[in-house]
Design a protein around this nucleic acid. Structure first.
Lengths: 336, 336
DNA sequence: CTTTTTTGCGGAAACGTTTTCGGCTTAAAA
DNA sequence: TTTTAAGCCGAAAACGTTTCCGCAAAAAAG
């Protein structure tokens, strides 16, 4: 089955390539008769336009780049699903890149994307990137960028987030109302925007409820290998916490493990709430109280915003800050 | 910052575009001096080649398509991670498409990929596709295809799977050895290759251990909304099973739910083993005994095979059937 | 000192589209 | 009858590369 191209169709029909091209796109300059002829033959020969030839000429790729830390993670996986659904609806293609939370990788990926491979990028910043020059360069090169979850605050681009501060505040208040006097906040990479605001919410709730918050009430646990021992040490200490609020899903299973090892009863002796999109949350024992982000919706919103920016036809200023509320799902792990 | 292209570099250096092109690729036809000059300027001006121009000319895209049912699923997410790692190592780009287990979507995606957007495709077939013409057409169009997990047996392409039959056999034997006399096999979409062989393994194990296997020992549960009630009915019946072996991760939480609702004690009254890549498996109560597939390795192998096919330089017949063993991880849910 | 080979480079075609420009008919308007 | 307009289409340029072909000068061989 020889590949058929526009010239082939033109030859077959004894008309010019330009006419074929126009006919396929329903140009008003072409007679109905010709359009029908062309389309019929294209259908018959299973003509598929070469995407890159068109991209090159039109300087439009109809593809976006998705740059995220990882995807074996319920949150990112669901965000991605949301993006993908909207992308398919709009006939866009999605290139996906994982930074593995590595700044250098993120830099090289974004640098590569400056060159016209994509029209826009949906980005969630790696946990250890601090400076943002590579992102600036990308935008400078004319690529639209939409942020989600881990955003670059200094940019004027669209940002999709959840109400990190409020969700964290509410989760903390919940712990306090269930009787916690010494909640511990465990988190990661506090220079990120999302975790930063979650911490603020935690701290503010403690203050508002007159808990004498100390420095060691907030624990930044970036290194996987020490999480368990660190947590164990704290839970064995004399002034141990009576509740834990985790800002990230990746820390949500450790307390179970440590409690089991140390014979600490949850929730009686230790109440626990975690940000999480884990499906199994309600099957843990005790079932995990979660702050869950509307990941799928966030993905859809990010994609929708990006396409709106790319297809400038729709007037109206694009929504810059799009905040989706997270919901606190109370289960057994936090109840008195 | 105006975009710089090869012609721009050429003009700047008073040499021809072809020389620049060759210099950038370290052609032996170009003097060391010129090469250095060109590269220095390219570096200075942050030259990035336009990917699609090159693809068009060379008829090589350096991008692959990944077509999978979904990605909010631990198995597929990890496979994808594996693919992505190898892709980045080889400087390939990955377009990802989700079929959402929909045959029509899969058909239209593959049809689109015939047109030269990718060099090859890594595919795991949607659960409800029965005929394979769209895949044949893709291969016919000159696109290399590598299958994993849900494969097309009739194709001579590379296939990456796990030892479905043996793993299922072993898991079933494990249940029997723990005392099960009436194991129930729950599964989905038995026309798929993977589930088909898992069922065979289950059946054979029952036979080998002289259990009088009946038709209702295998239950195909394709519709999410009836899973719970169906399972409940069975577990309430007089000749209820004393063990369950699930062939798919997506069914691995239902038994917990139903047991809780019906007051059935697991594992005392009902033992349970499931195929699963869930991180939380050991945190469920009782901790879930799993057959876990080396998802990340499968992804890496799929990508590696594909790239080997694409870069024909490496001689030697490519490995056609690549079978990765799964491991049975015994936890509490299946112990007597 | 001539002939051949090698080295280093430029011109132009090619990849498959889209789009600009222009031209030719025929019909409508003047 | 002449002018204008409308309708329909073709030739060629353009997008940014790579590569085929050819050619001059220098080096090697004779």
């Amino acid at each position: 089955m020889a590949k058929i191209d526009i010239k082939g169709l033109a030859r077959e029909l004894n008309i010019s390539a330009s006419t074929v091209s126009r006919a396929l796109r329903d140009s008003h300059e072409i007679s109905k008769a010709t359009i029908d002829k062309v389309k019929a033959l294209a259908e018959k020969l299973n003509y598929q336009p070469h995407p890159y030839a068109g991209s090159l000429r039109k300087n439009k790729t109809k593809t976006i780049g998705i740059v995220v830390p990882e995807v074996s993670n319920n949150f990112f996986a669901k965000v991605f699903s949301g993006i993908e659904v909207v992308a398919q609806e709009n006939n866009y293609h999605a290139l996906i890149y994982l930074t593995h939370d590595d700044y250098d990788k993120e830099k090289s990926i974004l640098r590569h994307l400056e060159s016209g491979r994509v029209d826009g990028v949906i980005l969630s910043i790696a946990s250890n990137t601090v400076d943002h020059q590579h992102i600036e360069a990308l935008i400078e090169a004319g690529i639209q960028v939409v942020f989600f979850d881990r955003i670059g605050e200094s940019f004027s681009s669209t940002k999709i987030t959840t109400d990190d501060y409020n969700s964290a505040y509410k989760a903390t208040v919940h712990l306090i109302e269930q009787g916690c006097k010494k909640p511990l906040h465990i988190t990661r990479f506090l220079h990120q925007t999302n975790t930063k605001y979650r911490k603020k919410g935690f701290v503010q709730a403690c203050k508002d409820y007159h808990l004498p918050i100390a420095d060691n009430w907030v624990l930044e646990l970036n290194d996987n290998v020490v999480v368990e021992s660190t947590l164990a040490d704290i839970l064995k200490s004399k002034d141990k916490p009576d509740g834990i609020f985790s800002a990230v899903e990746t820390l949500s299973l450790y307390p179970y493990k440590v409690c089991k090892d140390l014979g600490i009863k949850m929730p009686e002796q230790l109440k626990f709430v975690s940000f999480s999109n884990m499906d199994a949350a309600s099957f843990l024992v005790p079932a995990l109280t979660t702050v869950t982000q509307p990941a799928f919706e966030i993905g859809k919103a990010a994609a929708a915003s990006l396409f709106q920016l790319l297809e400038k036809k729709k007037r109206g200023v694009p929504i810059i800050d799009n905040i989706f509320p997270s919901t606190l799902i109370v289960r057994e792990s936090s109840l008195k």
